[in-house]
Design a binder for these strands. Structure first.
Length: 523
RNA sequence: CGCGGGGUGGAGCAGUGGUAGCUCGUUGGGCUCAUAACCCAAAGGUCGGGGGUUCGAAUCCCCCCCCCGCCA
């Protein structure tokens, strides 16, 4: 566990990636979970003052793209340009703070992939061999016997694939079984959460098999993809192309300064379907190229929608942009991070979203801010009073705030984001309780207790401020609104270190109270 | 078949040997600063089934049932 202590040096770098997406259709809520989780951690590290690089992108060199483009009667380039707009729009709507965006069709990415491939070649890990399987011409893909459905292509029920053999390039993954076993032994945090580790260790125990890294360009077919170095009759197949994005994004191989600043990646976030490729193939490829391995692969489960599998073909999907228009980005971010544990699959339910919105965001958090700001306005003409002498209740509130922050931090650092929110909510709840205990509305009626009222109002404002600060990675716009209503400036890089202690700011005048999350009435 | 994960109050989950916890929901009470919000309390579980180890098991062992994932 990375115990970083209470503060951080601002000279540290933090590199985080998400999987790159196939732009063969528009993004849906399932894509969003991973981006939001990664964004929370990226924002958290910026809040610590780390030099953070958060990279995402698009996987455009696959045959899926050619098919989608053809189906829509446009060129592949026009198609991916159009899809890029859709993806960027979705991530922007969800407030995903991406630093670097990579498309695999970019020349710099061709350059990086070629370099990585050549390094593996020089290391003797690439060889040519026969590849055989059931070939579907529509997919331009091979399937195993088991993958076929009644002898037909799983994606094209009308097509009976042919048994084909071709010469392919292979990567000698088997060379890396032992060294990867050792890596897993020496780095128990390499896979997070650790529920996925036994599966990888099982694969290692049974021995790794080499995998195909190229496809022949067939006659009459567009050479879509990155040519294999030294053999343009082949293009790279998936892994040396897609995974290399993580290197391209930070300047590999030509910008050594930038690359050395960020590599190896601190966290690479992926969906559970590609666990093996990121936990086994990818490290082996990096070892072959003489590059250090990422520190952590973070695996998340899948989302269902109202209990059903998300599928465009059955119309069971939600457009994140429409969702944001209806509820706002922060409620969706909060809901997904609070309700879905990365360790297991989660469900997106409209009823539960509204529930979380009203109960957690509206009642607990929004109402807390509202009552604090209202009372400061009503009893102290909008000026936050000086803190005064702390009694037992204030010391207790301060201690809960400290624990909430330290627990929250520790949990974010091990990617336990739902529990981190629970830890932060301890402070929100405690501050509400504190107000009940002090009853400032009664203190206000007795001029002799003005000092107690001052202390109470200051303490409640401070508890609310610290909760807002810790929430900033999860609900960034809301955190700024909290600061704004408390009369403070918007949250900045490094603020968790600078302002994350009880009493770290000088308050001034609060703004007019305004509900953060107006209640959503349901039928 | 094999490997792995899981089955805990109405719902969702935590809990790996020592009186079963959390959030929501339900019920009752309090408060009135606040977004019909907030606070307090109560009811509700023979921890999938059976057997075993132990002074003592949700927690360890064996068998069975059910759900999910992996097999390149």
């Amino acid at each position: 566990m990375p115990q970083k202590g209470p503060a951080r040096l601002s000279t540290q770098s933090f590199y985080i990636t998400t999987a790159i997406d196939y732009p063969n259709g528009e993004p849906h809520i399932g894509h969003s979970l991973e981006k939001i989780a990664a964004d929370v951690v990226a924002r958290y590290h910026r809040l610590l003052g780390d030099d953070t690089a958060f990279c995402m992108g698009l996987d455009e060199n696959s045959q899926h793209i050619l098919r989608s483009a053809a189906a829509n009667d446009v060129s592949p380039k026009a198609w991916t340009d159009r899809m890029e707009v859709a993806f960027l729009k979705a991530w922007d709507a969800l407030d995903i703070s991406v630093d670097s965006w990579t498309r695999t069709t970019e020349p710099r990415h061709f350059r990086a992939s070629t370099e990585l491939f050549e390094r593996a070649q020089r290391n003797g890990d690439i060889y040519k061999s026969a590849y055989a399987g059931w070939y579907c011409p529509n997919c331009n893909n091979y399937y195993t016997e088991a993958e076929l459905v009644d002898g037909r292509c799983p994606n094209h029920p009308t097509i009976e694939p042919d048994w084909l053999e071709e010469e392919n390039y292979f990567f000698a993954l088997s060379n890396y079984t032992e060294i990867l076993k050792e890596h897993f032994r020496a780095n128990p945090d390499f896979i997070t959460p650790d529920v996925w580790r036994p599966e990888m260790e099982g694969l290692l125990a049974s021995g790794l098999k080499d995998f195909s890294v190229s496809r022949q360009v067939r006659e009459g077919q567009e050479a879509w993809g990155i040519p294999v170095p030294g053999d343009p009759s082949h293009v790279m197949y998936v892994w040396f192309d897609a995974l290399t994005t993580y290197l391209t994004a930070i300047g590999f191989p030509d910008d050594a300064e930038r690359f050395d600043t960020y590599w190896p990646a601190d966290s690479q976030v992926i969906g559970k379907d590609i666990t093996r490729f990121h936990c086994l193939y990818w490290p082996a490829m990096l070892l072959s190229a003489g590059l250090p391995l990422p520190r952590r692969i973070v695996v998340h489960g899948f989302m269902t929608l109202e209990g059903k599998r998300i599928s465009k073909t059955t119309g069971n999907s939600i457009d994140p942009v429409e969702l944001v228009e209806e509820f706002g980005a922060d409620p969706i971010r909060y809901y997904l991070m609070r309700e879905v544990s990365l360790a297991s699959d989660g469900d997106f339910s409209r009823v539960n979203l509204i529930h979380r919105y009203n109960n957690d965001l509206g009642n607990d958090l929004g109402n807390l801010l509202n009552r604090v700001v209202s009372m400061i306005g009503r009893y102290r003409q909008g000026t936050v009073p000086a803190r005064g002498e702390a009694g037992e209740l204030e010391r207790d509130l301060e201690s809960v705030a400290g624990e909430s922050i330290s627990h929250g931090r520790r949990l974010i650092e091990v990617w336990d984001l739902d529990d981190a929110l629970t830890a932060i909510w301890q402070l929100v709840r405690r501050t509400n309780q504190y107000l009940e205990e002090r009853q400032p509305w009664k203190l206000a009626k007795d001029p002799e207790r003005a000092a107690e009222l001052d202390t109470t109002l200051w303490s409640a404002a401070e508890g609310t401020r610290l909760a807002g600060l810790m929430l900033a990675p999860f609900v960034p716009a809301t955190a700024d609104r909290i600061m704004g209503q408390l009369g403070l400036t918007a949250i900045e890089h490094g603020d968790l270190v600078k302002l994350g202690q009880w009493g770290a700011v000088e308050f001034g005048s609060v703004a007019a109270p305004e509900p953060l999350f107006p209640r959503i009435e349901v039928e």
